[in-house]
Structures are given as structure tokens and as C-alpha cells.
């Protein structure tokens, strides 16, 4: 007997085996569909700017952030893709191309805004840049960061998979992970008798023993 739960904790698919020959599964059709979809995302990387460098790293050997979650194969025809990564700044001149690519994709389609520029225009608040791609196309997940670290992108992919499984199309934002080192530093600083605002990490600092990392997926999304 086994069961598949989606990350929101609700039971989605239940597989029961009651004899060596007999097997059946009960689930809601939508849940099964969502479960299947979330592990087979075909991505179209719309890479324009600096965030593309992090996107390369994400695909690189250290992070391997897409293949592990079933979204490895890039499809360079929008008609074969269902996940659009918008990586980098979208200028006013580029906006029609983005819109056109989005419209060519088949439903259901998901859009991830990778980086601050794609999410809101970032610090390019001027005549040339669109203030976020949500002015052009709807967005499912926003990833803040300039550029976001690969870890944040992995979180975003997990968040998107959650949403797909739940059938939830409201936009979501990736939350920052809790920085354990920073928290311990703050505690250390508080307990220190004289406050030293100097660069803490730079000069012979006391060794910091790290606590167990709490699960980043815990807590509300």
C-alpha cells in the first residue's frame, strides 16, 4: 500500500494493493492530472539578460535544478512547451515578441518571472523597460533577486509544482529562505558585551556552530 501526497498535505492519490494480483487506485481525476502535469513540465527559456547567467548555472552540474524536477527538456518551439521562463529584462521593444510567444503556447501554460526585472522592471525604471512582465502576460510565480540564486529558483519550481497539483492559478512569490548564519550572528551580537558593528565575517571571528537547517519548505507559502 502506498500513497502519494501533494506538498500541501492533502491526500491526492492513494494507491492500494490488497493482493498479489489485484491493484486499484482511487483519486480525483483533477488531482491525478495535476500530479502528472507537475512532473512533466516542458520549458521554454526566454532568456534575455544577466539572469541568463544564473539560468546557465542552474542547469549546470552543481545545482542541476531542473532535471531533478522533471523539467529538463527545453523545447524551443513555444507550441511544445507549457512552462515559460522569462529570464531577464523585457524591454518595450521586446514586449511584442514575448506576448506572441505566450500566445503560441497551448493551454495549460505556466509563466515564471525569473528575477526582479521580469517581476517588476527592477531598477530600470525608465523609458525603455516594461515595469514587469505582468503588464504583458499573466504570471504564476515571481522569483525576486537580481539575479536570484539557484536555490531560489528551485524553490520557485517546487512552488509552481504545488500550485499545479492544487490547480491554483493565483500568482505566488518565492519567499527568502531563512539564513541560519545570519540568525546566529544576530544572537551572538546581542550577547556580546560591546557592540561591534565592524565587518563580522572578515576578521578572526569565533567559529559558529550551525544548528540543524530547518526544512525550507516548512511554513506557509
Amino acid at each position: 500500500m502506498g500513497e502519494v501526497r501533494n506538498t500541501s498535505g492533502r491526500e491526492a492519490v492513494r494507491v492500494e494493493v490488497t493482493g498479489s494480483e489485484v491493484g486499484f487506485a482511487t483519486t480525483k481525476f483533477d488531482a491525478l492530472l495535476g500530479w502528472a502535469r507537475k512532473w512533466s513540465l516542458f520549458q521554454y527559456p526566454f532568456v534575455t539578460a544577466c539572469c541568463g547567467m544564473e539560468f546557465m548555472s542552474l542547469n549546470g552540474p552543481r545545482f542541476d535544478g531542473l532535471a531533478r524536477f522533471g523539467a529538463e527538456a527545453p523545447r524551443f518551439s513555444p507550441r511544445q512547451a507549457d512552462l515559460l521562463w522569462v529570464v531577464g529584462t523585457i524591454s518595450q521593444k521586446q514586449a511584442p515578441a514575448l506576448k506572441r510567444i505566450y500566445e503560441q503556447m497551448c493551454d495549460p501554460k505556466y509563466v515564471v518571472a525569473f528575477g526582479t526585472c521580469a517581476s517588476s522592471g527592477g531598477f530600470y525604471d525608465n523609458y525603455a523597460t516594461t515595469p514587469g512582465i505582468d503588464k504583458i502576460i499573466p504570471v504564476d510565480v515571481y522569483i525576486p533577486g537580481c539575479p536570484p540564486r539557484p536555490e531560489a529558483v528551485i524553490d520557485a519550481l517546487n512552488l509552481l509544482q504545488d500550485k499545479i497539483a492544487r490547480g491554483d492559478r493565483t500568482p505566488g512569490v518565492v519567499k527568502p529562505r531563512e539564513d541560519i548564519v545570519e540568525r546566529q550572528l544576530v544572537t551572538l551580537r546581542k550577547s556580546a558585551t560591546d557592540l561591534d558593528y565592524g565587518p563580522q565575517r572578515r576578521s578572526g571571528e569565533p567559529p559558529i556552530t550551525l544548528g540543524r537547517t530547518s526544512d525550507p519548505k516548512e511554513g506557509e507559502r
Binding site: 518595450q92 521593444k93 514586449a95 511584442p96 506576448k99 525604471d125 525608465n126 523609458y127 516594461t130 515595469p131 505582468d134 503588464k135 504583458i136 502576460i137 499573466p138 504570471v139 493565483t170 500568482p171
Partner: peptide, 15 residues
């Protein structure tokens, strides 16, 4: 600097 001349009309909506 912030006078934009969009090529695409912007979407509107609650999101």
C-alpha cells in the same frame, strides 16, 4: 527618464 511609450498596451486586472 520615466516617460514610457509602450509598444504593447498594458494588461489590466486585479493581479
Amino acid at each position: 527618464a520615466d516617460k514610457t511609450q509602450p509598444l504593447m498596451p498594458y494588461r489590466s486586472g486585479p493581479d
